[in-house]
Nucleic acid binder design. Structure first.
Length: 115
DNA sequence: ACTTTGACTTGCA
DNA sequence: ATGCAAGCCAAAG
């Protein structure tokens, strides 16, 4: 079957708890394309263009915690403001990943890695 | 159909 | 520490 990577990406992003963030790389890893972080960005871009506000794409940051996609929002400020509203703390221009990094967990993947 | 680029990440120089 | 190149998938020109 064709890889519905976008569906998976959307699903994962929707699962990000409030006040948490994740990175493109982690999402990509969960959906199977370990080095396909770009694809995640593309998916979110499509989402943004399709007005899929259901998906909290503002909780997805790059591996440094920087809001790489902030400029793709209505305004470059709304992203950070939303995160701050949810209780996310920032260190300079980046999210405090030490406190708010959420690792997406695929059920099947969890079974595979289960010890 | 081929080339270029993009909200990324990693590695080597 | 900074900079360039490669790798990955999909979409647009």
């Amino acid at each position: 079957m064709p890889n519905d990577r976008y569906e998976m990406i959307y699903d994962i992003v929707c699962q990000i708890p409030r006040g948490m963030v994740t990175t493109y790389g982690h999402i990509a890893e969960v959906i199977g394309v370990k080095s396909g972080a770009r694809l995640v960005g593309w998916a979110l871009n499509s989402v943004a263009h399709s007005a899929r506000i259901d998906i909290p794409c503002h909780r997805v940051v790059n591996r440094l915690g920087e809001l790489s996609g902030k400029m793709h929002f209505e305004t470059p400020f709304v992203m950070r403001e939303r995160l701050e509203q949810e209780g996310v703390t920032f260190v300079g221009e980046a999210v405090d990943l030490e406190k708010h990094l959420w690792k997406p967990v695929n059920c099947e993947l969890r079974i595979a890695n289960y010890e």
